[in-house]
Design a protein around this nucleic acid. Structure first.
Ligand SMILES: [Zn+2]
Ligand SMILES: [Zn+2]
Ligand SMILES: [Zn+2]
Ligand SMILES: [Zn+2]
Lengths: 140, 140
DNA sequence: CAAGATACTGAGACTGAGTCTCAATCTCCA
DNA sequence: TGGAGATTGAGACTCAGTCTCAGTATCTTG
């Protein structure tokens, strides 16, 4: 189903559905949780598919635009993506001491965000809420 | 006042208050809104103060830890900081088409975040809520 | 179906924010 | 005041991500 969404998006922008883009989409669909572009590259290589690093980096923004994935976390100067699955959407508590990441879901926060957007006439397609601090173990 | 907070933090970690760190702190205190490390470097240079790029990059995390500033936005692989002023805290709507950034304040969202942290025994000292999408002008 | 117009690809050079190294220097406490 | 140990600056380095460009694939129109 995300394939047709992606295809739609490409057509709308006058872009083409190439084997490389299909391969990236498929691999993305198979991902669980956060992933980095480089991880996609490795997995595709392992499958014997040759999709260049450049193509992967060129495809990811298209997938974001079409709402198939979203930028989930920026850490160590790397962008991690995540599939957009309304069911599993969550945000993150990030411990800056031990690096652990706690996922949490808060429907009320999501609802308030929607309201903020409505108030500003803003059409959101994704968001990132990162709360930084110390986890229970690392707290003083 | 942020000077004493910073000094406290350094002492607690067994670190020293050097002229370079003082200079960075002062320049940071003079900043309005978001700023990038490189901007600090330029401003200090313009004042005739010589603080190396390395020292600036080394000082910023210390200022974050001590709660004087926070990482505000990650964009184009650059980290932007912002002073922590409870009064002015806000989050961001980012238009991915025209790049405009709309600031918004939502006490209810902040309160819910605090509750999430409490529930997880997490000691937050900062957070970033970035909502990406299309602004009123860019929406279809 | 052919042909042109245009989008796409991969290899690898390139960019630039941020980090690391290390010898010289400075802090701060006893 | 002396010295352990933290700090500094210059510049080499890292590495995620971007750009280039020549060769290739896709779509459209007749
Ligand atoms: Zn959320
Ligand atoms: Zn921790
Ligand atoms: Zn906030
Ligand atoms: Zn816009």
């Amino acid at each position: 189903m995300s394939e047709s969404v992606f295809h739609q998006h490409l057509r709308r922008k006058g872009l083409r559905l190439t084997p490389e883009r299909k391969a990236v989409l498929q691999e993305v669909a198979a991902m669980k949780g956060h992933f980095e572009p480089e991880e996609l590259l490795l997995r595709l290589r392992k499958k014997g598919l040759t999709v260049s690093r450049a193509s992967i980096y060129r495809t990811l923004p298209l997938l974001v635009e079409s709402g198939v994935i979203e930028e989930a976390i920026y850490k160590d100067r790397k962008t991690r993506y995540e599939r957009c699955t309304e069911k599993d959407h969550h945000d993150h508590l990030i411990c800056t001491s031990c690096g652990s990441i706690i996922e949490f879901v808060s429907r009320p926060i999501e609802a308030l965000q929607e309201e903020v957007c409505r108030r500003h006439g803003f059409h959101a397609y994704s968001h990132t809420l990162e709360i930084r601090g110390l986890c229970q173990e690392c707290a003083p």
